[in-house]
Design a protein around this nucleic acid. Structure first.
Lengths: 172, 172
DNA sequence: GAGATATGTCAACAAGGCTGACATAAAATT
DNA sequence: AATTTTATGTCAGCCTTGTTGACATATCTC
């Protein structure tokens, strides 16, 4: 008779044991889920000649009217050259407007135009449909679990920043 | 006195109402969480001269020894030309081995080498650490909620396929 | 006035997607 | 046996979106 396998005791898991058991299920589900999630807007973006990079910029500008370049760079974590390429197109095609800052005239404050807002909303609704479909089959407090989990996946140093951005900081 | 705001009744939400209320929180949390999640392995991959595309290929080959090219293309949903570019490098650097199929000699069966398996495991453990940290602060059944949610985010047509792939199909 | 800061821009490069066309070997069909 | 289909490989070129490095301009701060 083989040796008994010790009972699984999550409360006793040390770092060493965790390291032995890769969470393949969550790793892979996250990959597939994200792939499908971001692919929803693609067809619509295509009609406008935009890509996913444009979507991300438009999304955050629409959500945070008056965002500065520096703030946007901090959110997206890309270089200003990469940002500028897509931002320039969004401005030229009149989806985003750039105004000179009032208190600091070096800054550029970004705003979605009416057209930009419409597109951002259209894409957000599309993704929301998928999210709601997935949430609908969960417990009533399933959403709390999911958003808590996603939040804690984020780097601890960024977490407070993201929380403010996502849930609002009381100023708005 | 303004009109009373109707109580939020998720059980009564029709498609129209859902569409009016974009789930900005989950959309953004998903974006930030996925960004940090996939960035973990980057530094290690860099040491080997590999990128994220190599990681994905190595991961699935390691998880499903004997995978064919066609099956891998179906999982990754990229073109064979894109796959071949990274797969060729993984084979040349001896992280993956390609054997001619036995029942069908047109097929190539892919296997991770010892070196390839070690790298795949190292990267999976790294991502698992982040996942476990995020799960650890959830209810005991938080993991069920999360994996159920992620699974239902996936396109319905793919869901059964992914389930088999992630949770096993009983054959292995 | 000098230096720091916010932004813009040019040029070049890399990763990793894509399309289209064509090649080969092996299996399946007729 | 000949033909067609299938699984894979490969060449060439293009696109998006990221990167680095260098330099320019306007404005704010000291």
């Amino acid at each position: 008779m083989p040796d008994a396998i010790p009972a699984f005791r999550p409360d006793r898991l040390g770092k060493d044991v965790l390291a032995e058991l890769p969470a393949y299920d969550l790793i892979e589900l996250f990959f597939f889920a994200y792939r499908d999630f971001v692919s929803d807007p693609d067809r619509i973006l295509d009609e406008y000649g935009f890509g996913r990079a444009h979507h991300r910029v438009l999304h955050f500008v629409d959500r945070q009217p008056g965002l500065t370049i520096a703030e946007l760079l901090d959110i997206l974590k890309i270089t200003k050259q990469s940002l500028n390429r897509v931002l320039k197109e969004l401005i030229e095609k009149d989806f985003i407007e750039s105004r000179t800052g009032t208190s600091d005239r070096r800054q550029r404050l970004l705003f979605a135009t009416a057209q930009g807002h419409d597109l951002a909303l259209k894409l957000a609704k599309l993704q929301t449909r998928r999210i709601m479909r997935a949430l609908s089959e969960l417990d009533p407090d399933g959403k709390k679990h999911v958003s808590g989990y996603l939040l804690r996946l984020i780097d601890p140093d960024d977490r407070a920043h993201v929380e403010r951005l996502v849930f609002g900081d009381g100023k708005t």
